[in-house]
Design a protein around this nucleic acid. Structure first.
Lengths: 233, 233
DNA sequence: ATTCTGATTATGTATGCACATAATGTCAAC
DNA sequence: GTTGACATTATGTGCATACATAATCAGAAT
C-alpha cells in the first residue's frame, strides 16, 4: 500500500521542472510563490522549498528574496565529471594496470612551477615523473610536483607498490583545486615516454590542489592520442 | 545581537568537514550518528541531517541506512565547469563578438550522425556550420545538426542576428546531455576556417542534448590552438 | 549449517510552526 | 522631488515530531 503522503519533494521537483520544459512557464517568467504552490500541490511549504532549492542549485531557476522565483534565462550549461584514480580508469576497461616511476628527486622547480605552488625562491619540492600503463602499453604520462612543506611525510614513502596518485588520494585531503584541459602537440620527450609519434595531438590536463592556502600538489598529465574526457550535462 | 540559535547547518557542515580534514576522522571511518552529533552540537537532528546531506552530495562522505555514515575513501575528484554561451565567453574577455554562418541546409546526415541522433535512414536534419569571431578573429568553428523533428520551428528562424547557439539556449529546453572533449589535429578544412595551420593541435568538443528520448542537437566545436577549459574541483 | 522472521537502528523525509533576512513598496517629512 | 522610516512580502532556515525505509543482526525454525 502506498504512503498516504500527498507528495514527495522529488515529485514536486519533477512537476515544476515539467512545467518549465512544457513551456507552461517560460524563461524569465515568475513562478508562483512557495505558499501558493504548497496549497496547489497539497503539501507543506517546507516540501516545496526543498524541491525549489534543489532546482535552484541545479541552475534551473533563479530565486531572490521578496522578488520571487523565476525560470533561468541564460541557462549556462554546467558540466560535471568524476575524475577517477588512474588505476580504476584502466581496470574499468578490463585492462591490467601498472606504472613505472621514471624520476623522483627533491629539487628546486622552475619559476613557473614555483609561482603556481607559491614556493619561495630556494624552496625545494618533490618531482616525480611516472608512466601509467594499461596492459603494459603506455597510457598516461604524469609529471608531478609535491609540496614537501605541506606534505613532509611523503619523503618517507616507498612508491614501488602504490602510485603517488593513489597514496595522495588515500592520505592527503584537500580543500579546493583547479583542473585545466588543453590540447598540445606532443614533444619529443612526451612522445618517447608514451611510445607515440612526435607532434601527435594529445590532451593534457593540469591539476592543482590546495589545503586551504597551502599548495598540495601540481600534476600535469599527458594522455595518449584519441583519449576522450566525458562529461554529463 | 546574534540569534540565539545554537548552530546553522553551514556551521555544522564546516565542523564536520573540519574534523575530516584534521584527520580526527580518517577516510573509511564511521562518523557518529545524526542523533549523537545533534546532541553534541546542541541542535536538532534535522539540522545535522541537512549538513550531512550536502556533504554527501559533495562526495565527502558516504551514507547508508542503518550502516551509518563514513568518510569517503576513494574520493574521486568531481570537476565541474559552467560552459557559457560563446558570445558571453568572448565578451567576458572584453572582445567584440561576431559570427558568420557558412552553411545552412536541410539534408540527410552521414550514418554516424544519424546514429548519434537516432534518426531514421531517410530523415533529414538541419546542418549549420558557423564561425565565431572574437575581435574579427576566428575563435571557434561550429558544426551543428539540429533535429527538425524535435524542433520544427527552427526552420522558420532567421539566423542573421542571433546565432543558432543563442536561439536554442533561449527557446529550447533539454533534459540531459553529454559533453565529450578530445584533442585533434586540425584538418585542412578546419585550419582554413579558423585561419590556423593545418595539423595544429586543437581541442574539440562534442555536445549532444536530449529532450527526454528525442535528440535536440549535436554540436561539434573546434577551438583555436591554445584554448583552455577550466574546471573547479 | 542454512534459511526465514522479526526486532533494531540509522538514515530519509514530510509537516507545522516560528523566526530571520533581503528586497521591495509606501508614505510621510523635508 | 528626494530622503528616510516603516510595513510588507517571499524566500531562508531551525526545531520538534512523526513516520518511512533500508540494512543489519539475532534468534528461531528447518
Amino acid at each position: 500500500m502506498p504512503s498516504n503522503r500527498t507528495h514527495t519533494w522529488q515529485e514536486i521537483h519533477e512537476r515544476i521542472r515539467g512545467n518549465i520544459l512544457n513551456r507552461t512557464w517560460n524563461p524569465g517568467d515568475l513562478i508562483p510563490g512557495e505558499a501558493q504552490l504548497a496549497e496547489q500541490f497539497g503539501c507543506a511549504r517546507t516540501t516545496v522549498n526543498r524541491a525549489m532549492r534543489e532546482l535552484a542549485t541545479a541552475g534551473v531557476i533563479d530565486r531572490k528574496r521578496k522578488a520571487g522565483t523565476r525560470v533561468s534565462v541564460q541557462r549556462t550549461r554546467r558540466v560535471t565529471a568524476e575524475i577517477p584514480v588512474i588505476r580504476s580508469q584502466v581496470e574499468a576497461q578490463g585492462m591490467e594496470y601498472n606504472f613505472i616511476v621514471q624520476k623522483k628527486q627533491l629539487r628546486v622547480p622552475n619559476s613557473a612551477t614555483k609561482q603556481a605552488m607559491r614556493l619561495g625562491a630556494q624552496q625545494k619540492a618533490l618531482h616525480i615523473r611516472s608512466i601509467h600503463l594499461a596492459n603494459a602499453v603506455p597510457f598516461i604520462l604524469e609529471d608531478r610536483w609535491v609540496n614537501t612543506h605541506t606534505i613532509p611525510q611523503i619523503l618517507e614513502i616507498d612508491f614501488s607498490e602504490t602510485s603517488v596518485n593513489e597514496w595522495l588520494v588515500e592520505h592527503v585531503p584537500f580543500t579546493n583545486g583547479e583542473f585545466v584541459v588543453e590540447a598540445v602537440s606532443s614533444s619529443k620527450q612526451v612522445a618517447q615516454a608514451l611510445d607515440i609519434s612526435c607532434g601527435d595531438s594529445i590532451l593534457s590536463s593540469d591539476r592543482s590542489t590546495w589545503l586551504d592556502d597551502k599548495s598540495v600538489t601540481l600534476v600535469k598529465l599527458y594522455y595518449v592520442p584519441g583519449h576522450q574526457m566525458v562529461f554529463t550535462i
